[in-house]
């Protein structure tokens, strides 16, 4: 009964990967979008924030290349994160100049477009699934999110 919906969602997951070339292209567009969002949020003009965006863009591409050519099952997010952490650790010679530039790019301002894309990405199959068994799954999901978050908070709080 639900299978065709599940199939569609699963297919979405499998298909939803861009090639390296497509990713690089799309990232350029996303960078422009982020610069505008940053402008509206922090008042820093796109020209002033451009070097910061370029640094971010370069780090993402290096991360994508690593995930492509070192296939150890590490997701791209982890590679990108690793690259930017290593560049910015105190002993890195690039740390100080990179951090000084990146101050021009607000943390929250570059998240806002991501959430906008997230809302646009919700597919028909997901809406259908929600309508069909919405309440039960919604209730369980809230418990899952709350349980996971609060569980981790308790452990971390006890050990700090």
């Amino acid at each position: 009964m639900n299978t065709h919906i599940e199939n569609a969602v699963a297919e979405n997951l499998e298909e939803g990967r861009l090639s390296l070339k497509e990713s690089i292209l799309v990232l350029a567009v996303i960078s422009i979008v982020s610069l505008v969002s940053n402008w509206a949020g922090t008042g820093i003009s796109p020209i002033q924030a451009f070097p910061a965006m370029l640094i971010i863009y370069a780090m993402v591409i290096v991360g994508l290349l690593l995930s492509k050519f070192i296939p150890i099952g590490f997701p791209a997010v982890a590679w990108v994160s690793l690259v930017s952490v290593l560049i910015s650790i105190p002993i890195s010679p690039l740390s100080a100049p990179v951090l000084a530039e990146l101050k021009n790019l607000g943390f929250l301002a570059i998240v806002t477009p991501v959430l906008a894309y997230a809302a646009m990405a919700i597919a028909k199959a997901e809406v259908d699934l929600f309508k069909k068994s919405g309440l039960k799954i919604a209730a369980i999901s809230i418990l899952v999110f709350t349980g996971t978050y609060v569980g981790s908070v308790f452990v971390a709080d006890a050990l700090l």
Partner: peptide, 17 residues
């Protein structure tokens, strides 16, 4: 949907720094 997977990466890079 596929764009979203990539769109999160600039933010992850900023996060790393």
């Amino acid at each position: 949907a596929p764009i979203l997977i990539v769109a999160i990466l600039p933010f992850i890079a900023k996060f790393g720094t």
